[in-house]
Simulated assay, not measured.
Amino acid sequence: MSPLVFLPPLVFFGLAALFLIGMQRDNPDALPSTRVGGAAPVLEGAALGSNPQLTDALLAEPGVKLVNFWASWCAPCRLEHPILEALADEGVTIYGINYKDDPGNAQGFLDELGNPYTAIMTDEGRTAIKWGVYGVPETFVVDGNGQVTLRFAGPITQEILAHTIRPALQAAAGQ
C-alpha cells in the first residue's frame, strides 16, 4: 500500500486541529490594541463648549478612569449612553473624547441625553489615531498610573459591562 493513501486523512486531521485551536481563542472578534499595557497617548483637542476640558494631567491623576470616544452622529453611542450615565452615577470617572463632530451637535446630544463625562475634549482625528481608534464608540480603561489596561471597541451593553468593563475596572484598581 502506498504511503500517499494516508496523506488526505492526515491533511484533514491537521486542518481540523487548527480549526479547533482557533475556536478556543478568548474572543475572535476582539481587535488587537497596541495601547494596552502602555501609557495613555498624548491628547490633542479643544474644549467642548463650557464643559471641563480633558487634559493629559487629568489622565495622569490617581484613580481608575474610562476614556470614551463618541459622536452625536453615532447610533451605537446613543445606545450605550444610558450605561455610561449609570456608571457615572456610581462614581466611575468617565472622560469623553468627541470624535469628528460638530460642537453644536455634540452639546445637543449631551443636553438631550445627559452628560456622564467628568471632562470632555473634541478631536478632529489626531488623538483617535494615537489611541488606535477604529471607530466610535470605543472605550479604554486607564489605571491610576496612566496606563491603558483595556480597549473595548463597540457599544457597551449590559453584558459587556458585566463581563468586560467591570472586571477591567476592578483589575485596574488592584482589586
Score class of each variant (00 low, 15 high):
Ile120Cys: 03
Glu124Tyr: 10
His81Thr: 11
Ala173Val: 15
Tyr95Val: 04
Ala171Thr: 07
Pro52Asp: 03
Asn27Val: 02
Ala88Leu: 08
Asn68Met: 04
Gly174Val: 09
Glu85Lys: 13
Thr157Cys: 05
Gly154Tyr: 08
Leu18Gln: 12
Gly108Trp: 06
Ala40Gly: 09
Ala57Leu: 03
Ala162Ile: 02
Gln170Phe: 06
Leu150Thr: 09
Ala60Thr: 13
Arg166Lys: 12
Gly154Val: 12
Phe6Ser: 03
Trp70Met: 00
Tyr117Ile: 07
Ala119Lys: 12
Gly108Lys: 12
Gly22Leu: 11
Phe69Arg: 11
Val142Ile: 13
Ala172His: 04
Glu124Trp: 08
Thr157Ser: 14
Val64Pro: 04
Arg25Leu: 12
Glu159Asn: 04
Pro116Gln: 00
Arg126Ser: 15
Gly45Gln: 05
Glu80Ile: 02
Glu159Ala: 04
Val64Trp: 10
Gly132Pro: 03
Gly125Lys: 07
Thr55Ser: 09
Ala168Trp: 05
Ile83Asn: 09
Glu61Ile: 09
Asp123Pro: 03
Ile97Pro: 05
Ala60Ile: 14
Pro28Gly: 05
Leu113His: 14
Asn51His: 11
Gly49Arg: 03
Lys130Tyr: 06
Pro41His: 00
Gln175Thr: 15
Thr122Trp: 07
Lys130Met: 12
Val148His: 09
Ala46Cys: 02
Arg35Gln: 08
Pro167His: 05
Ser33Phe: 06
Phe140Ser: 09
Arg35Tyr: 01
Ala40Gln: 07
Leu110Ala: 13
Val141Asn: 06
Ile97Leu: 07
Asp143His: 06
Gly174Met: 12
Ala57Gln: 07
Phe13Val: 15
Asp101His: 10
Asp56Ser: 13
Val11Ser: 10
Leu59Arg: 07
Pro76Ala: 11
Leu66Ser: 01
